[in-house]
Structure formats: C-alpha cells, structure tokens
Write a protein that binds this DNA or RNA. Structure first.
Length: 829
RNA sequence: GCCCGGGUGGUGGAAUGGUAGACACGGAGGCCUCAAAAGCCUCUGCUCGCAAGGGCGUGCGGGUUCGAGUCCCGCCCCGGGUACCA
C-alpha cells in the first residue's frame, strides 16, 4: 500500500486552525471521497505482508440509486473494512454488480431500450450512491455479471461442470402460458393461476431444461453447516431445505402384474401393518400399467384436471382437500400379505422419494384426510398415550396391531421391519432428500448464455473454450409476448458445429442469475487474470470470506448454491483443494420496513438517501443506521425517523464544535486523570460493541465520550489529556463516520485517521478503577457505595452496614451474600 | 400445522443472574436573544408524599435463587420462514 501524499496536502498546519467554518457535511464528504477514489488506501495486493482478511457484502442488483437497505448493508460492510484495517489487517474489500436479471428485460419489452443500456445507467447511479456513502473499495476489482470477460468464465465453469457430469439436461414441469407461448417464473403467475401479462390460464408442462446436480452434494452441504459461524436460523433453513430423511424403500407386488413391484418410500416402516392403501403420484412413470382398463377414463380425466394446476397451487390451493381416484388395482403388503387398493392422488409428489407411498391413515395426517374422503379403513399401530385425543398420532409409543412388532418401540420396530424386508428381499433402508437438482435454464435474453450447441450429426456439443464467450447479439427485437429474442435471432442461433463443421443451432436458454453470484467472490480474489477464471493461489490467499454480509432473503438459494459451487470447484481442482466453504462468518442484517412492508423498489415505498446526503450528510445517515438498533433486527421507518437522523447530525455537530474548543496539545496524557479513565472505559465499550455486532451500543459509547469530554473541557481538565481524549474519539469514530473523522483528524494532526491503529484499552487501569457496590436488603437495593475493587469483605461490610443502618433496625441479619465488588445482600428475617 | 425470532417508558432501544430504562428521539421548564433559529442547562416509567422517603413496575401465570428483564415450566400476543417432501 503506497502513500498517496494527500495527508499533507490540505490545510496541514498543526495546532489551532480557523474553525470559523461551520460543519458542512456535503462539502467535507465529497472532498474526502474524491481523495479516497484517487488514493490506493483500500487497494490490496496478494503479497501484502499484513494478515489478510476478506470482507464482502452481497453484491447488489443494480436497480438505480441506492436505497436505505443498501445504505444499511454497505455501512455495516464499510465499518468492518475500516475497523479491520485499523487493526492492522490487509482487507480485501471488493464490490461489483449482479447485473443480469429480469427487470432490465421487462424494461426492454416495455420501452425498447436495450437491457445493457438500461442496466448500465442504473449501475452508474448505484455506484455514485456507494461512493457518496463513503464506502471504501478496491475499485480495480470491480466486476459485473454482464461483462463479456465475466460471461466468458461463467460459461467456462459451466462447461467444466458439464464435463464432470455435474450438469445435465432433463425434463421438468414449468409454468407455461399458452397465450405468450413462453415459460413464466412463479412470480409471474397470479394467485388465480393466470398469466400476469396475457391473463391466460397457466398450465404445467414438461420442458427439457438444464440442471446442476447439486443433489450429489446434499450430504456434504448438510455436514458442512456444522462448522460455519452463521446465524443458527440460516443453518436451520438450509438443513430443512436439504431435508434429509432416513427411512425405507419397500417393494409391493401388484396383484395381476408379474415382474412388477411398486416401490414406495416411507420414514415409518414400523407402521407397515397400518398401511391400508397405496398412492402413486400423477407423474408416476408406471401409472398406465397400474390402471385397470375400466378406470382409464376416470384416471385420464383426473390427470387433465391436475395439469391445469401449477405445482404451487397443487400444494397450497384452498381446495387442497385430498384429490385422487382409485386405479382399480391392488398391491400386496410384503409383510402382512394384505391386498390394498392403489390410488393416484396429487398429494403425492412425483419427484420425491419413489413417487409412491404406502398410506397409513392412523399415523399420518395427510393419509388420514384422504382416507376419510374415500372411506378407507384406519388402523392404529402405535399405542396412544394416556389422554391423547385425535385420530392421528405421530409420536413415540409401543407398537400394537402389528403382529411380530407388538410391544416394540417405534424405533425398534423400524429396525426390525427393515431387517425383515431385507431378509425377504422386499426392501431396505433408504435415505431421501427434499433438495432437488438446481434448474438453471431461463428462457430469457438478459442472462449468461448457456454455451451449448445442437448438431444434427454430433448431438449436444459444448462450445469449445477458445470460442468463449458466447454473447447475445445486440441486434434483436424485444416482443411484448415475453419470449426471449434469442429464439428469433438467426444470427445467434445458426452456427457451425465445431466437431464436424456441419450446421448446428445454439442453445437459446440463459443461466439463472444465481449462477453468476455463485462464484463472483472467487473472481474478486483475482479479477485480473485473462486466461483463467481466477488464480488458484490468489483464491487460496484470500478465501474463505471472513465476513459475509447480506439480507436473510438469500438464506437458502444463493448461499446454498455458492456453497455447492465452492465444493464442486474444489473437487474439480479449479479452486484450492482445502477450500470447501466460501463464507466462514455470515451476518444477516435486518430489513427496513415502511408502512408495514419491506422497503423495496418493487413495493414503491423507497426513501432514498440522496436528500440526507445533501443535507445532514452521509456520516449522519450512516451513524443513524448504526445507532437505530441491533443490526440484525428489522426496523420501521416512521415519522420519527427523520428526527433521529437529525439527532445523529446534531451529535456530529457537537463533535465538530468540541474539536473547535479543545486545542491540539500532543504529549503524554495524565493516566491518573478521571477523564483518562473514562476514555478507556469507552474505548472498551465501543470495541466490544463492534466485536459483537452491537453497533448501536458502540455509537452510544461515543456519544457518552463526547458528552464526557465536553464536560471535562468546561471543567478545564488537563489540556493534554483533553486532546488525547478527542484524538481517541476521532479514531473510534473513523469506521462509523469516516469523513468527519478524517477531516478533523487531518486538521488537527495532519494524519490520515484511517491509517491509525485502533485504540488499545488499558485493561490494568480499568481493573483497578473504583466501582459501585450495590447494597441490598432482601434483594432490594437500599444504597450504593463507591469502593476499591480489591477491598476485602471485612473492610466493605461495616461500610455497607452503616449505609443501610435504618433498614437494619429491629431486624435480625440471617445471612450476608457478598459478591464483591458488585453486590452485598443482607438477608434479614 | 411445523421451525425460528421477539414482547422493556410516549418512541427507537440498553442491561456477563446483581442499582431496570444506558444512549438517543419526543415532551416540559429555564438560560442566551430586541425576537427567532441554533446552542446550552435542568427535569422526564407509573404512583403515594410538602418533604425525607416509600410502594409498584420488563406480555400473563407459576417455579428456581439471597437476588430474575435475564434461567426453568405452562400460556397469550406479534413478526418472519416454511408448507402435502411420505
């Protein structure tokens, strides 16, 4: 890190300066921002000798000028960067933009403006806001997803995954709008199941799509959570999302079908004596075989009805009473030999487990509901506990009505059934996951093209590395139907097969934008390489991210996909072998609400920061976001918020005027001075607040310090100690309100406050300081005493007793609980 | 339904089992001023009392403890996530 020379280029003079100028935040802030952008203060290189750390905020979708959510997020990030820097670390602090996505494409359809133009305008606005906020970045490392040099490596990685068998093509149900002839995202389907654009009824349709085989990593992704310093609830959400279930797969013979077994999955093999029917999903591949001839018509009608429902509806719909029809065939219970009817019903999902279940209405709510609808028998196989009411019991207990299992516990019975099934070859233990493979195909223009060709002769052919990036053409037409223009661009679609030289067509799907955000943090380590996605050594040097900061809305998808990418890249040798988890610590900030809902552009309830930048300044706004409450908590933007921001501004003004009143007086402070003690107590509290993400308490400590110094100044405390206190205050303030701290520090000391060491607490001094002893009678505080923390009980007790003498009259002291030097409690009768 | 969070003054919030309400916002009074703005000072949980000094208070009900906002049990309410995953 080289010196940029501006430390001495300003006012420069030590000692007094002309403070007739008032605190003018916008002027000061813009000037410092200009200096920061010219300096290399927050540029880091891989051979930096300081201990390395990596602080990253989730890179933003460029939606235009920053809103308060951005301000909050990037204020937290910047505080971390500047604080760690003052603690002697080389901090990698990059920023970029998640610049592909639907809004730009919708705007193109609406107005005809090319998504790139639309996006880059908004990127420039967001960048300007971040700069205006005063956030410190290594801008040399800026990346954005739609940059051809980023697209190139996204495609390169896609192809490596493809070659490794981690990418495949398969059929998946999608929301299809017959009117628009296109696929819709779930958000584009209205609650009544119609298309938001055309109003047509959306149907489910199987379409060939590209997938990442994330399920191969299900177990690893689950186990990897253990060691992460992440919020517990985010880890829990990921665990639930992966949804590992241990149970058994059981084969049922089907009456009249030779050489066929119906395989079901259950987590409750112990309940097999209660299985009174079986159900297959509407998508079950063997549905036709399982349907008796006389019921084909009914089944067909049912399947048509199911097809009109999107998957979302199917699961959540109001009428989600159990729907289904009997198939007219029967399965044979391998344990009991019982003959049970087979149904098709849409409460069973085709993509989970085996797509078929044995239904146990006595021990499963869903099965019970269905059984009741269809008049099917219910058998209880677990003894209900005393006092239990209700038809369905899912808890532990002794097995009943279960033949050889009777008397066993549920857990014992599970093992017993599995071993019996294995013996007779009718089943075995099985583990299933809720997690599905990651569907990455998007029928969109504004995304990273999937680098695949289809050749009549050679079939599916990956685009050779030396032909990357595959870029979408600019010369396209955006149709109001929402179809991707790539479909109609012959210039893009028609090409030559690299293998045989014959005619080929390009894949027109683009990738989910979560692909872009799954590796950007790796590219940040080395955005300079032109011949590879990133240098492995650079990644080894910086990764994992020491502190990742973002919103909880990404708790599942982004954070899971990024974890998958890191593991896969590591296994493929593209990332360091030791790198398994990308984000060591995660912090999820609370959201900002206005009028009861999340503040967001789509809700149209934004309060933009610009007017605060123009008046009270970025420092005051930053301070407000730090002060308003715990960073992890949500907060409501209300009528009072402006007054609180105003209060933060007034605080900074008091700091400014305090600096005016306290002359520069460098030297050794008086360590015996009470002011010196207060300074150290407040260094401790400020630091503690930062370390435990309680920034609101850190700000409070700085306010107290300011108040204390102000009083000390009025009381004519030793001028060197006063100067020392103010200097410390500015150092503590630097990560939070970097501009005013820089300005005052520079004016007073001619130095860059951000290059100072974070103030160190004199712990010995704090430990020896006089403390307040609470004197209680029966647990009620009756007096307080100021005592030496080391004073022994024999000394303290008489003092305490004297202080509460009036409360000890006419009573007998039974016990004295002394927890010195904090409390002494007299227990009286 | 299930899984997390969370209920503390008029408001945002603070409090390793040890003085509940730090620090702010708002409010009241005062100083400065010809006046205002700004700034500064004092007060500000409820309640009884002239005062000194009491009593009550962290959603509700129990419990543990010398001592509970904090720990345990049972409820109520609010917010978020998730939702037929067998």
């Amino acid at each position: 890190m080289s010196s940029s020379g501006w430390e001495t280029s300003l006012v420069g003079a030590l000692g007094f300066w002309d403070m007739s100028d008032r605190y003018d935040p916008p002027a000061i802030e813009v000037a410092w921002q200009a200096r920061w952008s010219q300096s290399e203060a927050y540029h880091v290189s891989n051979d930096d000798p300081r201990p390395k750390s990596y602080v990253l905020c989730m890179y933003p979708y460029p939606s235009g000028p920053a809103h308060q959510g951005h301000v909050r997020n990037y204020t937290f990030g910047d505080l971390n960067v500047r604080y760690r820097t003052m603690n002697g670390e080389a901090v990698l602090s990059p920023i970029g933009f998640d610049s592909f996505g639907l809004p730009a494409e919708n705007a193109a359809i609406r107005t005809g403006v090319h998504p790139r133009v639309f996006t880059e305008e908004r990127m420039a606005e967001l960048k300007a806001s971040l700069t205006r906020l005063g956030a410190a970045y290594d801008w040399r490392r800026e990346i954005y997803s739609h940059d051809p040099s980023y697209i190139r490596w996204s495609q390169y990685l896609f192809l490596r995954f493809y070659q490794a068998g981690l990418v495949y093509r398969g059929d998946a149900p999608v929301n299809w709008c017959p009117g628009c002839q296109t696929v819709l995202a779930n958000e584009q389907v209205l609650a009544d199941g119609t298309c938001e654009r055309s109003g047509d009824l959306v149907v489910r349709r199987e379409l060939t799509q590209w997938f990442f085989r994330i399920t191969r990593y299900a177990d690893e992704l689950l186990e990897g959570l253990e060691d992460l310093d992440w919020p517990q609830r985010v880890k829990t959400m990921q665990r639930n999302w992966i949804g590992r279930s241990v149970g058994a797969e059981i084969s049922f013979e089907v009456d009249g079908l030779d050489d066929y077994k119906l395989r079901v999955f259950t987590t409750r093999p112990d309940t097999i004596f209660g299985a009174t029917y079986a159900v297959v999903a509407p998508e079950h591949p063997d549905l036709e075989r399982l349907t008796a001839p006389d019921l084909e018509e009914r089944v067909k009608a049912f399947l048509e009805e199911v097809a009109t429902r999107s998957e979302l509806e199917r699961m959540a719909g109001e009428d989600a009473g159990k729907r289904g029809v009997p198939l007219g065939t029967y399965a044979i219970n391998p344990i009991t030999g019982e003959r049970i009817p087979i149904y098709v019903a849409d409460y069973v999902l085709g993509h989970y487990g085996t797509g078929a279940i044995m239904a146990v209405p006595g021990e499963d709510d869903r099965d019970y509901e269905f059984a009741r609808n269809f008049g099917l028998p219910v058998v209880e196989t677990v003894a209900r506990p005393e006092g239990f009411v209700g038809p369905v019991y899912t808890g532990p207990g002794a097995k009943i009505n279960s033949g050889f299992l009777d008397g066993l516990s549920v857990e014992e019975a599970k093992a017993e059934v599995i071993s019996r099934l294995e013996k007779i070859g009718a089943g075995s233990e099985s583990v299933k996951y809720r997690l599905r493979d990651w569907l990455v195909s998007r029928q969109r223009f504004w995304g990273c093209p999937i680098p695949i060709l289809y050749c009549q002769a050679c079939g599916t052919v990956p685009v050779p590395d030396d032909q990357l990036p595959v870029l979408a053409p600019d010369d396209v037409e955006f149709r109001p139907t929402g179809e991707s223009p790539l479909l109609h661009s012959d210039a893009f679609r028609l090409t030559t097969c690299p293998r045989c030289g014959g005619p080929a067509t390009r894949e027109t799907d683009t990738m989910d934008t979560f692909v872009d955000s799954s590796w950007y943090y790796l590219r940040f380590c080395d955005p300079f390489s032109e011949d590879r996605p990133f240098d492995v050594q650079a990644v080894e040097d910086w990764m994992p991210v020491d502190q990742y900061i973002g919103g909880v809305e990404h708790a599942i998808l982004h954070l899971l996909y990024a974890r998958f990418f890191t593991r896969a890249l590591s296994d493929l040798g593209l990332a360091p072998a030791t790198l398994k988890e990308p984000f060591k610590r995660l912090f999820t900030q609370g959201m900002i609400r206005l009028g009861g809902s999340k503040m967001s552009k789509s809700k149209g309830n934004l309060v933009t920061p610009q007017r605060y930048f123009d008046t009270v300044g970025a420092d005051a706004l930053r301070l407000f976001h730090l002060f308003v409450g715990p960073p992890a908590d949500d907060f409501d933007w209300t009528d009072q918020t402006d007054e609180m921001i105003e209060g933060c501004h007034r605080f900074l003004q008091r700091v400014w005027s305090l600096a005016d009143r306290i002359p520069v007086n460098q030297g050794e402070p008086d360590t015996g001075n009470p002011t010196y003690l207060v300074v150290h107590q407040l260094i401790a509290r400020t630091t503690d607040g930062i370390d435990r993400w309680a920034y609101n308490t850190s700000v409070a400590a700085l306010m107290e310090l300011t108040n204390a110094l102000s009083k000390a100044q009025a009381d004519l405390v030793d001028p060197v100690t006063l100067d020392y206190g103010l200097r410390t205050l500015l150092e503590l303030l630097a990560p939070m309100a970097p501009h005013i701290a820089s300005e005052l520090y520079h004016r007073r000391y001619g130095l860059d406050v951000h290059r100072q060491a974070w103030p160190k607490v004199d712990h010995a001094l704090l430990a020896s300081a006089m403390v307040t002893l609470v004197v209680q009678v029966n647990g009620k505080t009756r007096a307080t005493l100021t005592i030496d923390p080391l004073a022994p009980e024999e000394v303290v007790r008489p003092l305490a007793q004297t202080a509460i003498a009036s409360h000890l009259e006419q009573v007998k002291i039974q016990r004295v609980i002394a927890k010195l030097p904090r409390v002494m409690n007299f227990v009286v009768e």
